[in-house]
Design a protein around this nucleic acid. Structure first.
Length: 423
RNA sequence: GUGGCCGUAGCUCAGUGGUAGAGUCCCAGAUUGUGGCUCUGGUUGUCGCGGGUUCGAUCCCCGUCGGUCACCCCA
């Protein structure tokens, strides 16, 4: 690597092996979302910087890939999809019946120092329900996230949904006499409860007139008597999914825009960062697009889920199987006699037109070498075209069984071979 | 932004104050019409970069860049 260019820090190359893994993850995301009747959308990768600073404050710029374009516009590579979604939904909200059930798979960028589970570029699966205030929408999203995990092969021994509701804490703050302006600070303290030392948390809470013991007791009680949480839990219980969910009032999520239920997906035993997270954000569409529309959603990145899949034997095997199913050849045409190459090419073309996955050596090679190629590309059947043409040889590579037939009988013979193998 | 560890062949890594090795991968042959094995042969390194100490540095020292893990943050 003396010369040339490396990938930028935190960016990844996707060679065929890892690209196949990535696509298998995408396939799972997409199929589960579609199973829930969600429709796919996407937006620009580059947006006005203001779209992101508007809701979160200017300090967010530090973690943005942003620059001034040739038209003197301040632009940023998207760090998340929700603001874009809010704009889209607001702009054409009259064209779609509510509630909207939308999902997206796209690439995002955050200028952060990379570490395990976090890169500067990543793919994210976003699912949102807009125009529905009922907690049933939150439950639907949580169920979707659970089913995505199950589709990867995880079960209740591998992960848990930690569910909370910000209103539980905003009510708590109101009862404690915390001013409107300080509620955000209060939520930040709760969010950091597990990470900060108790003395630090106690000191911060004292500034708001709250005792740490009261907060701890409230969390320990575990049953916040929240109407919306009760509905969500009952909904999930009716689906038979309650075993995946636990109430954890320590979940607040860092984002300022959440207004109600919030949840995160955590692995059990590996101690990774959250696999997915989301919640209700009923004011954001109004803020971005000027249209009052309730909304809730969650996102799952490809990095943490990818790590978790690879580090869990059952899901790793499942992923490998999915990748294998997407690759490989039906047929490999061996050109044993170069003078018959035109006949071989004709056959390759016809088989491809039929829809088979077919490859053949581009350059002349020894027959043994060609069989190796067929093997490496995991072809099911090798076809030898040689001097004896129009007699052709078909060989089932996994079974090492060889048959010979005339060219005009090839289709029938192939059907017979595939039929026997496929069942 | 802060700190720990790391940086030697495409990959995984050994190694020594006297300008470097193994395995693997890749390529070719054994095997000029039959495949995952085996055997043989072969290519590649400015030992991350810059400076310092030294007769001499891949090795010691400083800096820097990159990687990794943790903290901060996490949309």
């Amino acid at each position: 690597m003396a010369k040339g260019f490396d990938t930028l820090p935190g960016f990844r190359d996707f060679y065929p092996e890892s690209c196949a893994v990535r696509n298998a993850i995408f396939d799972t995301w997409r199929s589960v979302a579609q199973r829930y009747g969600f429709v796919e959308y996407d937006g620009p990768v580059l947006e006005p910087t203001g779209l992101y600073t508007r809701k979160s404050g200017a300090e967010i710029v530090n973690q943005l890939f942003c620059f001034t374009d040739k038209g003197e516009r301040e632009v940023a590579l998207r760090p998340e999809l929700t603001p874009t979604l809010a704009r889209l939904a607001a702009a054409r909200q009259r064209e779609y019946k509510k509630p909207l059930r939308w999902f997206s798979i796209g690439q995002f960028f955050r200028y952060e120092k990379q570490q395990k589970g976090r890169t500067r570029e990543f793919y994210q699966f976003n699912c949102d329900i807009l125009g529905e205030t009922s907690p049933a929408a939150d439950a639907e999203l949580i169920a979707l996230s659970i089913d995505v995990m199950r589709a990867f092969g995880f079960d209740e021994t591998h992960f848990r949904i930690r569910l909370s509701d910000r209103r539980v804490w905003t009510d708590f703050a109101a009862r404690a006499g915390v001013g409107e302006a300080s509620v955000g600070d209060f939520l930040q303290i709760i969010d950091k409860l597990d990470r900060d030392k108790p003395e630090v948390s106690a000191e911060k809470l004292a500034a708001l007139g709250i005792a740490l013991e009261d907060v701890q007791a409230f969390i320990a009680a575990g049953d916040p008597q929240s109407e919306s949480l009760g509905i969500v839990r009952a909904d999930l219980a009716a689906r038979g999914l309650e075993r995946f969910v636990e109430i954890d009032l320590g979940i607040v999520r860092g984002l300022a825009y959440y207004t109600g239920a919030v949840f995160e997906v955590f692995d059990i035993g590996k101690g990774m960062r959250a696999v997915a997270g989301g919640g209700r954000y009923d004011k954001l569409v109004e803020l971005i697009g000027g249209v009052d529309m309730a909304a809730a959603g969650f996102a799952m990145g490809d990095v943490v889920i990818g790590d978790l899949i690879r580090e869990t034997p059952a899901t790793a095997a499942r992923l490998d199987a999915a990748v294998a199913a997407q690759s490989g050849l039906d047929l490999f045409i061996i050109v044993a006699d170069e003078t018959k190459r035109p006949e071989a090419l004709r056959m390759v073309q016809e088989l491809r037109d039929t829809g088979f996955r077919v490859a053949s050596p581009i350059a002349p090679a020894k027959v043994g070498k060609q069989f190796q190629m067929a093997e490496e590309q995991r072809a099911h059947i090798a076809v030898v075209i040689g001097a004896e043409y129009p007699l052709v040889t078909l060989k089932n590579l996994p079974l090492r069984l060889e048959t010979i037939c005339r060219r005009e009988d090839f289709d029938a013979e192939l059907t017979r071979l595939l039929g026997g193998a496929v069942g």
